[in-house]
Amino acid sequence: MSDDHASSLISAEVRHVEALLESRGLLGAGEIDTRIDEFLAGGTPANGARIVAHAWTDPGFAARLLADANEAIREVGLSMAGGLQEQRLKVVANTAEEHNVVVCTLCSCYPIALLGPSPSWYKSEAYRSRVVRDPRGVLAEFGLELPAATRISVWDASAESRYMVVPRRPAGTDGLTEPELAGLVTRKGLIGTAAV
């Protein structure tokens, strides 16, 4: 959700329910905060960068990643099972012909447990409403000017899957190690609003 809810009606209701659960001994004091901290502890864009760098250097892994991302990321010690249940991860790869960009038009779905909290612009009404209609224009505002011949595929996270983009490997990076390659990948690149 895009707004600060600290003083909203829903926040008051949630605090009330939390207090009731605690008073009846169903929930320990501060347990929800602890669980949220645990959920977020491992999430960082560095995980996505590591997955991308491995896909760039290992075509077999790249193929497995696109076919079944949940299974493939276990090979690099990562998992989508950090929450109450494992979330499905769908990974899409940019090519010379096609560029992918991810949005959640209904709210702000994002692979938080894997990549950490989403950027504020991802949750903004402007991004969510405009990128499905005019992705080329929105990407240009991000500084990403795509060739006219490049097809754009927008992915709307409207149900239970979470999405990640594998950017194209930059030219002139043949000599780099996998950690050096990972250092090139940005959070915007993993969403599709930057080239890398």
Partner: peptide
């Protein structure tokens, strides 16, 4: 649940991209 791909022109009347909705 399915990934369903739409031509932008079919959704918005313009655009050469696709939108894949779940």
């Amino acid at each position: 649940v399915w990934h369903v791909r739409f031509a932008a022109a079919d959704l918005f009347g313009s655009g050469d991209h696709t939108v894949t909705v779940e």
